[in-house]
Amino acid sequence: MTQQSPQPTVLVVGLGGTIAMTPTTKEGGARPTLGPQDLLAAVPQLAATGITVKTQSFSNKPGASLTLEDIEELASRLWAMDSEGSIDGIVVTQGTDTLEETAYLLSLLYEARAPLVVTGAMRAPFLAGADGPANLLAAITVAASPQARGLGVLVVFNDQVFEAARVRKAHSTSTNAFIAPDTGPLGTVAEGRLRLLATPAHKPLPMAAALTHPARVGLYPASLGDDGALLEPLLDQVDGMVIAAFGVGHVPDTWVPILHKAAQRIPIVFASRTGGGTTLTHTYAFDGSEKTLLSSGLIGAGHLDPYKARHLLTVLLRSGADLAKICATFAPAGTTPEGRG
């Protein structure tokens, strides 16, 4: 095992987002313009940490404009850089709109020696109380810590450390926007060091196969009064579907024949739209219940929320996984034993 260097080296990679934004109009509208070197200039406390920081610009986009292809390329580039052995940790800065999704997708695509930490900001650098510098300092601290090794991809925000599979953005403007409803944070950053309180229950195994198969995966939310008329034609246009179901995995009864028919052709996963808790397997048995969906050929997502379930299904399909492999992967990923019924 490679020894941690006395003075660790952390690579900061900038993707854009609020943390890198400056005003571009008289009315104050902001766009990402700053690079990672600019972000570091706002963190003078870094000099006292003894951490050597390198930088690399990858893109300068708002989080909403990042693509799956962007993150696949980023993971590949970071994996290659880590193999050179010159860095001890990596920090990715990006927009918070998609930060929870990017972190989980990276956890499916990146496995290397160096810990990978994702962070950003809720307030742009030109606003009072900008949180970017503090988040960046905490993220670099965690990325350089030997304790972070082996924990998978982490999110660091507001001095809290989250597992990529559990973190959720739960507020549109607060600097305390990120939570983990089921587990809480894995740890905190205090007095300049990582204080680890827990470890992840399940660490995703990065996909070994190349993502060469085209795949389009949809996400459709259940809502009161939806009879499924809009869902049915959408199912004909995708290679896989995630249903953001009510509660523990329920949909309107009119959806059952539609989903049963489509599940004979494509993999369909159901996740809870609540953002916390798990899908169940056999507590309810009415038409549209989780038991009905499983017996109709759908796959339960367990504790994975709909957004993360979509990324897992997408990566599996793009790697060429068959239905058996998809079912086998979703069970431990959601930390539940359910399969197809």
Rank of each mutant, 00 (worst) to 15 (best):
Q4L: 15
K325Y: 04
P221N: 05
E111V: 04
L46V: 05
Q94V: 00
H303G: 06
L205Q: 14
H171S: 14
P252Q: 03
D97W: 00
S107L: 01
L34S: 08
I266E: 10
L293G: 10
S174A: 15
A20R: 08
A331T: 06
T24N: 06
A245R: 02
V161Q: 04
T52V: 12
L224F: 14
K169A: 06
D305H: 00
L106G: 02
L230K: 13
D227W: 05
I19W: 01
G300M: 10
D70E: 08
Q3K: 13
P233Y: 11
G225R: 03
R273Y: 02
A309P: 02
T9N: 07
R265K: 15
E101D: 14
A285M: 09
T175Q: 15
L127D: 12
A144I: 04
T24A: 06
T55G: 07
L68R: 13
L46F: 03
T254I: 00
D236G: 10
K54M: 08
A134H: 11
L136C: 02
S107P: 03
D253Q: 09
Q37S: 13
Q45M: 08
L136H: 03
A80L: 15
G50E: 03
A30Y: 04
D97C: 02
H213E: 14
S145Q: 05
A148S: 15
I19D: 09
T67R: 13
P23Q: 09
T9Q: 12
W79T: 15
D131W: 12
N60G: 12
T2S: 08
G16I: 08
E191V: 05
H202Q: 13
L66H: 05
L40Q: 06
H202Y: 15
L11Y: 04
G277E: 10
Y284I: 08
P257M: 05
I19Q: 07
E101C: 01
R310C: 07
I326T: 11
D226T: 01
A209I: 01
T25Q: 12
L230W: 06
G275C: 09
E163R: 01
V91T: 03
H282Y: 14
L116V: 09
D182P: 01
T254G: 06
T9E: 11
L280T: 13
R193L: 00
E191R: 15
K261L: 06
A42K: 13
L78D: 11
S174D: 13
A180Y: 03
D88L: 10
F330L: 04
F178A: 07
V217C: 06
Q237G: 00
L235C: 09
I90D: 01
E101T: 07
E73G: 08
E101V: 03
A164F: 07
P185W: 02
G339H: 09
G28E: 11
L99F: 00
R310Q: 15
R168E: 10
A271N: 06
P23S: 13
V248I: 10
P257F: 03
L127F: 02
S83T: 12
P306R: 09
K308P: 09
I299L: 11
E163V: 02
A301M: 04
S57A: 14
G152H: 01
